[in-house]
Design a binder for these strands. Structure first.
Lengths: 132, 132
DNA sequence: ATAAAATTGTTATATTATAACAATGCGTAA
DNA sequence: TTACGCATTGTTATAATATAACAATTTTAT
């Protein structure tokens, strides 16, 4: 039987918790370091948990940073439509939750007629604090 | 003085040429392998050329694949607004060049009021061939 | 021509991620 | 119950991606 979709294993819970607590996106190996006291010892354990949490939509990967953030959107159970705002200076990352944008992108069609089932958008700039 | 913006060094030309010839996005180490006969021997040489070519807008990095493609848009001299269509099955990648989309994204403002100077968008799905 | 600055070459190593297999747990049919 | 099959977790090793640090060379300004 495949794992129930709403069940998190111990490792998955540990990894999720640390990502949720963090104010910044976390790198896989910094997660590994933090959770070693809890018995997670090796990279594959972290990467497996990350993969699973991504599939469940509990976290997202910031591709340009190879880092992971918790999904702020409670209703997000599958992460097929993501948009982030990233500050080039302080590296702050926030998930953009904008219905117009999601609708626009979900309905976007290019001339090839290819149909998309997933997208990821990353915006870069300076956040208000850093612009001052 | 900093390097003139339209001048490519030998290594940069070699790397650009191989990326332009390729039908698929190329990985850094596959580029390295291909250009070793031309005298490029070590990773930093490839990565420097890639960085420079990206800044010039001659190539783009597909973040979700850690791979590099040539920019198809001749007028692209700075790569601050990119959008790609990626097939999950055959891994084909095409750059989307759609004025409406670029305009929409360039003008996008989220509620924080943060102003963006760059974005990268990656769409995933099945291309026409693979959908059949 | 020569010093300063920038670029390129080279070695080594850091960082990110996965393959491969062993150990463990877990449902289920006999 | 038990033992078989299968999924999950643990472990070791290594692959793949990327950069730091410094030496050699080339370019530029004077």
């Amino acid at each position: 039987m495949t794992q129930k979709i709403d069940f998190l294993s111990k490792n998955q819970q540990i990894v999720l918790e640390i990502i949720e607590k963090a104010k910044e996106p976390l790198k896989a190996y910094s997660i590994l370091f933090s959770v070693q006291k809890k018995g997670i010892k090796a990279p594959p354990q972290v990467y497996r948990a990350l993969d699973r949490l991504i599939k469940l939509g509990k976290i997202h990967k910031i591709e340009s940073k190879n880092a992971f953030v918790a999904c702020k959107n409670d209703s997000c159970t599958i992460s097929n439509a993501t948009a982030f705002s990233i500050c080039d200076s302080c590296e702050m990352v926030t998930e953009i939750s904008n219905p117009k944008l999601s609708k626009y992108l979900a309905n976007f069609q290019d001339k090839t007629g290819m149909r998309y089932n997933k997208y990821n958008l990353e915006f870069f700039g300076l956040c208000k604090k850093c612009k001052k």
